[in-house]
């Protein structure tokens, strides 16, 4: 029997919304794939695109960035900046012919435990279909 591919996903979760949302999903006993490695950041705009690249080049199969819904940012506007940065990163990755589908930006509020579970499950399935990140085994 061949071993089934279990992806490794790095999740950058904003402290005020998505991390609390993940917490809620946990306390609600919702099923969240164990492939997710959460990293708590104070705001989605804290995430320098370089951090995402680090994860990718070090072999993460997918990178999830989750923050407050637009308009709900704890710091009023952080997620708007995050969205622009993400757009830029996606463009860089796309124009060099790398897989931008391994990156996901999503909004999850503190009360959306259900949504958090859905987002992670969906992303996990997508990465499973994509297979292993080719950068994992390359000599970089």
């Amino acid at each position: 029997m061949t071993e089934q591919f279990e992806p490794r996903i790095v999740g950058f979760l904003c402290n005020w919304c998505s991390y609390a949302g993940a917490d809620l999903a946990g306390t609600s006993k919702l099923k969240i794939p164990s492939s997710l490695t959460p990293i708590r950041v104070m705001c989605s705009s804290r995430i320098d695109p370089v951090l995402i690249l680090t994860a990718l080049l070090q072999g993460a199969d997918g990178v999830l960035i989750a923050g407050c819904h637009p308009g709900d940012c704890h710091y009023n506007e952080g997620n708007y900046y995050a969205r622009r940065r993400f757009a830029v990163l996606k463009k860089v990755v796309d124009s060099l012919g790398l897989e931008s589908d391994r990156l996901c930006l999503s909004w999850v509020s503190a009360s959306e435990g259900q949504r958090f579970a859905e987002v992670v499950n969906e992303f996990n399935e997508k990465i499973k279909k994509m297979g292993q990140n080719p950068m994992k085994k390359k000599m970089l």
Partner: peptide, 15 residues
């Protein structure tokens, strides 16, 4: 562009 924003934009990149 990275130090400014519009509230309604690039919604297509959100997952």
């Amino acid at each position: 562009p990275l130090v400014t924003y519009n509230e309604e934009e690039y919604t297509e990149i959100e997952g």
